[in-house]
Design a protein around this nucleic acid. Structure first.
Length: 564
RNA sequence: UGGGGCGUAGUCAAGCGGUUAAGACACAGGUUUUUGGAUCCUGCAUUCGAAGGUUCGAAUCCUUCCGCCCCAGCCA
């Protein structure tokens, strides 16, 4: 199933990546006794397919080196965060098949330690309380091409800074009136080093620490210390943090943090064609009810992919295949679908369903006669059972009235259309040969019914080479069961591969097939079961809507299809 | 036009001075098949963003140029 065997990177067998190069180098130099990574989401939204790359990378890398990976919530901005998100994120990581080391960590666990470190920095003269407003700080920061100016408050005494910082914590100052800044270099060409903020005053209720704190540490300050506290050896993050690495290192250096110190390594985030992956926009879609919650199967969230029927294995396979590097790359959407198909193909039973029924009357089949036609759920492995059902075979009652797929018939079929047309012949899978000799149309000219005859042997009227008949799926009219089938387009999309997500947000399409008919056994399928409807794709009995009364299936992914 | 990154096939991605420039996806042809799927086989970069240079030898080292991404939150 996997492209290649995962080989032991310690023995240098697997085609490497640059991250492993760094790790190998650190291990060889004895800088770290082993590998400890972490997945550090901010609990401000649901995880999406983009996060799965980071998850697979962090957990996967740790696993490859027989190390461990922590789960740490980067919860330093209480106004955006919520326990709903911490719960969903934990569920999603587990569902993906990963187990983090020990208990769940939170940056907020370290607030007290972080505060102590801040005082230490102040004592060393490396941090100061600034009275400038946010707007003033922006003005003082300079621009990309001009250096910044030093704040008039930059040279306060250690005593004054300590006193002020303590009073910030004690709540003596209003929000935004003061901040704690690192004293680095206002002329640095790296803007992140121009006295970055370390703490801000924010009277906000924190989902874990409640109202205990009025000041909250910033990401750059928190992340490196959190990594160091947890003994992280390699802190893998996305490319936009490259410019922050000097600051990451500066903080630990300023604190004289003892070795081994964590090393930050950056990789390119996942870009998937057509797919909306900004948390802000996903939040907007949910809040404005463009979709049916975070697990709407059109969304690229892990929760949605789960409901949509993707397997954890398929997502891991996808992440495995896309690799990891530092170039900005756009993954073709097809890769995701392919990974799902590759995973599902060997493990998913085949079954018969007709999404848009077209009635067929078999005129040479006697009224009232039925014949049991049997076919295995796993054609390559005929004895294999359909999970959730006792049988190893489907049984269809061939009768005078049948349904075939509307798409499998064309009044005036072109040469390359191998299926049914007037005067043409096809084979009904696990059934008989069918020859169409007449069509019935309604007043509008729409084909409503096919008049056909059957035969047990081919008559050489197929559209394939040499009169070979194509094989199509079908279902008996009477004994099949009505179902609701929902065909989702790609994930929530923009119309063009790299379209402007801001302007072209597209609600994603959902096509209902209210007339769908299934082979009878499928009515008894449990929610969450997957099945391949011949030629139509992989489907899942919807976790929320499926019931024996009204079976509801979502299409997970289509089959590869060259027909046109 | 400050700083930090990145350019190897349609898309990903190995490669780290000597290789016929891995592998995957896509694509094409063939095999097989009770669905045009799946399977198996074969093919698919004389060239590594461009131009110069160093070298017996360059995708790999040097120089210049070109293109793309990121940074001016008291967000992460």
């Amino acid at each position: 199933m996997s492209d290649k065997k995962k080989l032991d990177p310690i023995n240098g067998e697997e085609p490497g990546n640059f991250i492993r190069d760094f790790i190998d180098e650190d291990l060889a130099a004895g800088r770290h006794p082993g590998v400890v990574t972490r997945f550090p989401p901010e609990p401000n939204g649901y995880l999406h397919i983009g996060h799965s790359k980071s998850i697979c990378l962090n957990f996967g890398t740790a696993g490859d080196y027989k190390g461990v990976c922590n789960l740490r919530f980067d919860d330093t901005n209480p106004v955006k965060e919520d326990t709903e998100y911490v719960d969903s994120i934990q569920d999603d990581v587990r569902w993906l098949g990963f187990q983090w080391h020990g208990h769940t960590r939170y940056a907020s666990d370290y607030f007290e330690k972080l505060y102590e470190c801040a005082e230490a920095l102040i004592r060393k003269g490396l941090a100061y309380v600034d009275d400038l407003s946010a707007e003033e700080v922006r003005e003082y920061r300079g621009t990309l091409t001009e250096p910044g100016r030093e704040s008039p408050w930059r040279n306060r005494s250690v005593e004054e800074n300590l006193d002020l910082f303590r009073r910030m914590r004690a709540g003596e100052f209003p929000d935004g009136s003061k901040s704690l800044r690192a004293k680095i270099d206002m002329a640095s060409p790296n803007i992140n080093m121009r006295d970055p903020a370390l703490y801000r005053i924010r009277r906000a209720h924190h989902h874990r620490t409640g109202d205990a704190w009025l000041i909250y540490p910033m990401y750059d300050y928190t992340h490196c210390i959190s990594d160091a506290i947890e003994g992280i050896s390699h802190s893998l993050c996305t490319l936009e943090f490259e410019d922050h690495r000097p600051l990451y290192d500066w903080v630990l250096e300023a604190l004289d943090w003892p070795a081994p110190r964590p090393r930050q390594i950056e990789f390119a985030r996942l870009n998937l064609e057509y797919t909306v992956m900004s948390k802000r926009k996903l939040l907007q879609l949910v809040k404005e009810n463009h979709v049916d919650g975070w697990d709407d199967p059109r969304l690229p969230t892990i929760a949605a992919l789960r409901r949509r029927g993707f397997t954890p294995e398929s997502i891991r396979l996808f992440c495995d295949r896309i690799g990891v590097a530092k170039r900005d790359s756009w993954i073709e959407y097809y890769w995701l679908e392919k990974a799902v198909r590759d995973d599902l193909n060997p493990i998913t039973p085949r079954a018969m369903a007709v999404l848009r029924p077209l009635k067929v009357v078999v005129e040479n089949w006697p009224e009232g006669r039925v014949q049991e036609m049997a076919g295995p759920y796993f054609p390559d492995e005929p004895g294999r059972k359909l999970p959730g059902l006792a049988a190893t075979e489907r049984t269809l009652l061939f009768a005078r009235e049948l349904y075939i797929e509307q798409d499998d018939f064309l009044l005036d079929p072109p040469k390359k259309f191998y299926r049914l047309g007037p005067g043409r012949e096809v084979l009904l899978r696990w059934g008989h040969y069918l020859h169409c000799h007449d069509v019935v149309r309604d007043a509008a000219g729409q084909v409503t019914e096919l008049r056909c005859t059957y035969s047990e042997e081919p008559r050489g009227h197929g559209a394939g080479p040499g009169g070979q008949p194509a094989v199509i799926h079908w279902v008996p009219a009477k004994s099949s069961v009505a179902a609701r089938v929902r065909l989702y387009d790609r994930l929530f999309t923009v119309p063009r591969p790299k379209g402007d997500l801001n302007k072209e947000l597209n609600p994603g399409s959902l096509t209902e097939c209210p007339e769908a008919r299934l082979e009878p056994a499928l009515a008894g399928l449990e929610p969450g079961r997957r099945v391949q409807f011949e030629r139509l794709g992989y489907f899942i009995a919807d976790a929320k809507l499926h019931s024996a009364g009204t079976p509801t299936f979502n299409r997970i992914v289509t089959l590869k299809d060259k027909r046109q």
